[in-house]
């Protein structure tokens, strides 16, 4: 096994990587409480005044509402489509079965700008104006894989004998699905939904190509940073968004790692 020294060095390395990952996040949180509107370090003093002005910013509100509406529908669609695909791949043998997991992962495995411009030229070709619906279509396409991966990982851990037992006891296919499979999948579905929601809420690259003139929250942030306008409010928005994401994501990971037996209860 590894020597004591190796173990220490690996531990220190891991700790430094954690610092690297989280120090920038901490810095931006500090900037949100900056009393000055100039973004320099160290900040001259602490203040809550930007939280108030952000709350009253109509552009932020509109963008946030559009983001939430799009994320809700995209999450719902990707839960339905992603779990259907996972159930089919898990239970049946069919031609092209191996290709399914390849196709669903493509929208996130191909560079984002390709998915973006592909959808953009597709909508353009059919003269389908960019709207709320095109945002939802784009987000659903790359969120499906999150739900799919979560559900298929869980299905692999559910023993097939449970389904057989249910059928032997006289339940039909639908009753077995409703009373055995679905309860065992529920936490995987919930964690998939939470992560899909988080991804949809945060996506910028594909969204710029499918949103047209509208602003989702990340698009508003991008525009504001690029123009160098309203930066104190940008600090507040990103801080609030990050803090609001932490809890659902940690919850999602706990749900994901539950064993199939736990979730059946």
């Amino acid at each position: 096994m590894e020597s004591r020294l190796t173990r220490w060095l690996l531990g220190i390395w891991t700790f430094l990587v954690l610092l690297f990952l989280f120090v920038p996040v901490a810095i931006i949180v500090v900037y949100a409480f900056n009393s000055s509107n100039i973004q320099s370090w160290p900040i001259p003093g602490l203040s809550l005044k930007w939280f108030g002005s952000t709350w009253h910013n109509q552009e932020v509100r509109t963008a946030l509402w559009l983001s939430i509406k799009a994320a809700l529908l995209a999450t719902t669609l990707s839960v339905l489509l992603g779990s259907a695909a996972a159930l089919a791949v898990h239970r049946f043998r069919f031609f092209g079965r191996d290709a399914v997991s390849f196709i669903v992962v493509l929208p996130i495995a191909l560079p984002g700008v390709i998915t973006g411009i592909a959808l953009n030229s597709f909508f353009g070709f059919w003269h389908f104006g960019l709207s709320y619906w095109t945002i939802v279509i784009g987000h659903t396409t790359f969120c499906i894989v999150i739900v799919y991966n979560n559900v298929i990982a869980r299905l692999r851990r559910i023993p097939g004998s449970l389904r057989d037992a249910s059928m032997d006891l006289g339940a039909d296919g639908f009753a077995t699905f409703r009373r055995i499979t679905l309860p065992m999948l529920s936490t995987a579905l919930l964690s998939g939904a939470l992560l899909a929601f988080a991804l949809s809420l945060d996506e910028v690259i594909v969204t710029t190509f499918t949103a047209g003139a509208q602003n989702t929250l990340p698009l508003w942030i991008f525009g504001a940073i690029r123009l160098g306008q309203r930066l104190p409010e940008v600090n507040v928005v990103v801080t609030v968004v990050m803090l609001a994401t932490v809890i659902p994501v940690i919850l999602a990971y706990r749900l994901m790692n539950q064993t199939a037996a736990d979730s059946g209860k």
Partner: peptide, 20 residues
């Protein structure tokens, strides 16, 4: 959980943090 958390924290916020 800690190593994966940043994936879900706002992408644009983390880029912006480096700009600052």
């Amino acid at each position: 959980t800690l190593m994966l958390l940043p994936i879900w924290l706002s992408y644009i916020a983390r880029v912006y943090a480096w700009r600052l």
